[in-house]
């Protein structure tokens, strides 16, 4: 091995790493030991590496990245952890609904079991159950364009018509998911309202093909406030139909018109 060959090998060697079992590295080290000029080059090369490492370490992540990561993970963990409570609440709701029992309990990921289409009320309750029992989103991103692209990639999913302009800074996008319910793919985009001080209420937008839901006229909006301040049902909701899609908004807290919170295009 000559000096140039040794340089090529030594330029990839991290001196403090002891796993130099490759024969070429051992040979390059032997050449190095007997060549002062090569030793000087090697020292300079190590200083160069140190400089690049130091500069790379100076690149700071965005100030809020750590908190965003932890918030996203906490939201996922909390939704999973509250599943048992949500199921108990759902069961009570199902008993109250009586006649709707079989439809309401239909698993989300199996085909529809009857000829009749689910109603708006069933859709609304089922999607609330999805939120409280959701194991996680399919994709996390703060960029609405990335989320819409992810949803559009699924040809069978109804994608909302969202305005994604920068001036909609009151919203912080979290991620998206596709849920199979009653034989239909439902798209979900999760957001937070970031213009409410330190509290960042959740906002969820579901979209399903209009033909999947029964009993909703065009231009009709069905909205509900939370039943009480201390109710387990803490969502204000709005359901409406537009351009072949049914939209459902779940907004945390009390809102008389949750539809206005979503930047639909």
């Amino acid at each position: 091995m000559n000096s140039d060959e040794a340089r090529f090998i030594l330029s990839s060697v991290r001196p403090e790493e002891t796993d130099h079992s490759a024969p070429q590295v051992e040979e390059a080290m032997r050449v190095l030991a007997g060549d002062p000029e090569l030793q000087e080059w090697f020292e300079k090369s190590k200083r160069f590496d140190r400089t690049i490492s130091d500069r790379l370490a100076e690149v700071s992540p965005p100030a809020d990245l750590r908190d965003s990561i932890l918030t996203g993970m906490e939201a996922s963990r909390t939704s999973s952890g509250s599943r048992r409570k949500a199921l108990a609440w759902s069961l009570a709701a199902v008993l109250a609904l009586g006649g709707f029992l079989s439809l309401f309990l239909a698993p989300r990921d199996i085909e529809s079991q009857g000829e009749s289409k689910p109603t708006v009320a069933e859709f609304e309750r089922a999607m609330q159950e999805v939120i409280t029992g959701m194991p996680g989103l399919d994709l996390l991103s703060s960029d609405p364009n990335v989320l819409l692209r992810q949803l559009r990639d699924r040809a069978d999913v109804a994608v909302p018509s969202l305005a994604t302009a920068n001036e909609l800074s009151g919203l912080r996008y979290l991620g998206c998911k596709v849920v199979n319910w009653q034989g239909h793919e439902v798209s979900l985009i999760c957001m937070q309202r970031s213009n409410s001080g330190t509290d960042m209420p959740n906002l969820h937008l579901f979209t399903i093909p209009a033909e999947a839901i029964e009993g909703l006229d065009h231009d009709e909006i069905i909205a509900h406030l939370p039943e009480s301040e201390h109710s387990s049902r803490k969502w204000s909701t709005a359901v409406w139909q537009s351009e072949g899609r049914v939209y459902l908004v779940l907004a945390e807290g009390r809102h008389s018109n949750p539809r206005q919170l979503v930047p639909l295009g």
Binding site: P61, P62, L65, S68, I69, G72, M73, S76, G136, L137, L139, L140, S141, S142, D143, V146, G175
Partner: peptide
């Protein structure tokens, strides 16, 4: 930032 967040998710 999105990639980092998605990785932790």
């Amino acid at each position: 930032a999105d990639l980092t967040q998605q990785t932790y998710f």
